[in-house]
């Protein structure tokens, strides 16, 4: 199920998401163990919806408005989103920001 990040860029995004998660949840998150591409938001991290809202805000600050959590919510409900893995989110961020750059050029 977990999408394995294939590129250097998605691996970088996974690392950045990990840092963002620690800043949102706090050091408590570190007891879960190492966060990687296969780590899931709900089952592994027990992330609450409100924490995902905060994470989405950080992602948008970092990657721009094409990382659109509300648009994402129009397609999937929050439970489906929280069932994703960090790697899957990284692939999504990579896809929408790459598409954004292609459109801009």
């Amino acid at each position: 199920m977990a999408a394995e990040p294939r590129t250097e860029r998605t691996r970088t995004i996974v690392d950045e998401i990990t840092d963002m998660l620690v800043s949102v949840v706090g050091d408590e998150l570190l007891v879960v163990g190492e966060i990687g591409p296969a780590t899931t938001f709900n089952d592994d991290l027990a992330l609450e919806s409100i924490e995902f809202v905060a994470l989405a805000e950080l992602l948008q600050e970092r990657y721009g408005p094409s990382v659109d959590f509300l648009g994402f919510l129009a397609e999937k409900d929050i439970d489906q989103i929280l069932a994703m893995s960090v790697g899957e989110l990284a692939v999504y961020v990579d896809r929408v920001t790459t598409a954004g750059r292609a459109c801009a050029s």
């Binding site: 609450e48 919806s49 409100i50 809202v53 905060a54 509300l70 648009g71 919510l73 129009a74 409900d77």
Partner: peptide, 30 residues
């Protein structure tokens, strides 16, 4: 907390053209 509205009505209301403010009440959420 605000996520219950954020994940349901806030997006559609914003897309319909209305500016939206969500906040966590004191003691709640973040």
């Amino acid at each position: 907390n605000l996520s219950s509205f954020y994940c349901t009505l806030a997006g559609p209301v914003s897309r319909a053209g209305h500016p939206v403010l969500l906040y966590d009440q004191r003691g709640h959420g973040r």
